[in-house]
Amino acid sequence: MIRDMEVQNNNIGTAIQYFRETYHISQSKLCKGICSVSTLSRIEAGERNVDALILETLLERLGKVPHQFELILTDFDYNAYMCREEIKKKINQKDIEGARKLIDEYDKLTTDKGTPHKQFTMVSRALLNELEGGDPRTNINLLIEAICCTVPDFNTNNEITDYYLSVTELNIILDILQKLIALGMDDVADKVLNQVLDYLYRHRQMAHIRNIYIKVAVIAGNFFMKHDKIDQALEICDNGIKMYKGSRRMDYIGDLYYIKAILLEKKFDKTTEWEESRKKECLKLYLQAYCIFDFCGESSKAENIRNHLREVYEWEDIV
């Protein structure tokens, strides 16, 4: 049996080429910001001497989880991997000095090894800055520098349309977005948000976009609500809820129902359309959100809903 598997052994390049062609993605779009087209050609042709993080990033851009594709690592890849894990651990433990030292080491170790490494370094520095309680603007700049490693056009006018982005890359952009909103830099945030929404819409058929979309719907729903764009906010909530169907996980979904309930209230309360059935719909959304928050231990959010239902709906019979 073991022998069987070895004979069937495939090359990761074949997988990249297969998925790329299945999704009709050109070589130049897939590797933009990561490696040259000729390097990607060599990878697809079976060249083995390629940095493991570059391979992982390419797979991730195709929506694949890198650990589905196990690699045997060269000494360099192995050390780099161990160092990344160690940095994450130090940051988790809030060991600022330890993390800083390792990040500097990692930076030196991976100079000229490719943009994904640089990106990892910059993201880690941003996390470190946050741990130290540094200036939020510096934090945003570090994250922008991080995303520009593999998406250089982000710097010019936040242009991401020409890329296929990995979940890691999208999450960096969402981090920037959330930090911009938190700082009240709404004009820039608005631009980034629209870029992201446009990107997600155009890539909606890719499986990994679904999970990201729900997170974005929560951010966008709140943002639009803040700017009184009620219909726009409602639309994105509904899309998020639709996308959520079939998911196993409960993250973000409580927030999504919560926002939708508030939006419906804002739109219809004190109008002639605030009918019994509409009121019921709102109440049900609140109760769904409440149950999720309550179950997942997000007690302050649950408490808010509880109070709101008592005051506005005279609803005592909460679950």
Binding site: I2, M5, E6, V7, Q8, N9, N10, N11, I12, T14, A15, R48, Q68, F69, E70, L71, I72, L73, T74, D75, D77, Y78, Y81
Partner: peptide
């Protein structure tokens, strides 16, 4: 993930041909 050295030594100790499983193993399908 194992380093190449560790992987090869392990497979060698078990008497397996090591080169054959090099690179990637789970995409055969």
């Amino acid at each position: 993930n194992p380093s190449r050295d560790v992987y090869e030594l392990l497979m060698e100790r078990m008497g397996r041909i090591r080169e054959r499983a090099y690179s990637i193993l789970s995409v055969s399908d």
